[in-house]
Computed example of a mutant assay.
Amino acid sequence: MATLLADELADALRIQKYPLQDRPGLVVLNSTWVPSALAEVAMMPHPQDAKMIAQRVYRLSAAQAIYQATEKYFTLTAIAAGGKKP
């Protein structure tokens, strides 16, 4: 799921894809019973990121990329489990 998120966000936002980080101690990721990943689409201390996140089109693009990655993940999971494409 994290790889799909990173790929979709990098493509949609035209940003560099950074290496994924395993964060096993992060409560938001290890206290859930559903697949989870954390996507950071901007870092507020960075002036360029602050400008981008202020733009509605950037936020919509990020949301669309997250949606597409989530849809791909569950489609691939269903197919791998022997089900049909939802």
Rank of each mutant, 00 (worst) to 15 (best):
M43F: 13
A12V: 06
L38R: 05
Y73E: 02
A81I: 00
I66S: 03
V41P: 04
Q48G: 10
I53G: 07
A42H: 08
A42P: 11
Q64R: 13
K17S: 09
R23E: 14
V41E: 08
A62Y: 02
A54I: 05
Q64C: 06
T32S: 13
L26I: 01
Y67S: 14
G25P: 08
A65E: 06
Q68V: 09
T70E: 05
A42I: 03
S31W: 08
A80H: 01
P86I: 00
A78C: 02
Q21N: 11
R23W: 04
D11W: 13
L4K: 14
S61D: 11
P35Y: 02
Y73Q: 04
K17L: 04
G25N: 14
A78H: 02
A54T: 05
M1H: 12
S31H: 12
T3N: 12
F74T: 00
K51T: 13
I15T: 14
P86N: 00
K84L: 03
I53M: 05
S36Q: 09
R14Q: 14
P45I: 00
P24V: 04
A42Y: 13
Q68R: 12
L20Q: 05
Q64T: 13
Y58W: 00
M43I: 14
F74K: 00
Q55T: 06
Q16H: 09
Y58F: 02
S31T: 12
D11K: 15
D22A: 11
Q21K: 15
P24W: 03
T77E: 07
L13C: 13
A69P: 00
L60N: 09
M1P: 08
Q55V: 07
Q48R: 09
A50W: 13
D22W: 08
P24D: 03
M44V: 15
I66K: 07
M44Y: 15
R23C: 13
S61V: 10
Q68M: 05
D49T: 03
L38H: 01
W33I: 12
Y73D: 05
A80R: 02
A10F: 04
L13K: 06
R56P: 05
T3Y: 12
A78Y: 01
P24T: 02
M1S: 10
A78I: 02
R23K: 15
S61A: 07
Y67T: 09
R59A: 01
I66H: 03
A54H: 13
L5Q: 08
G83W: 02
P19N: 03
E71D: 10
K84C: 01
R56C: 09
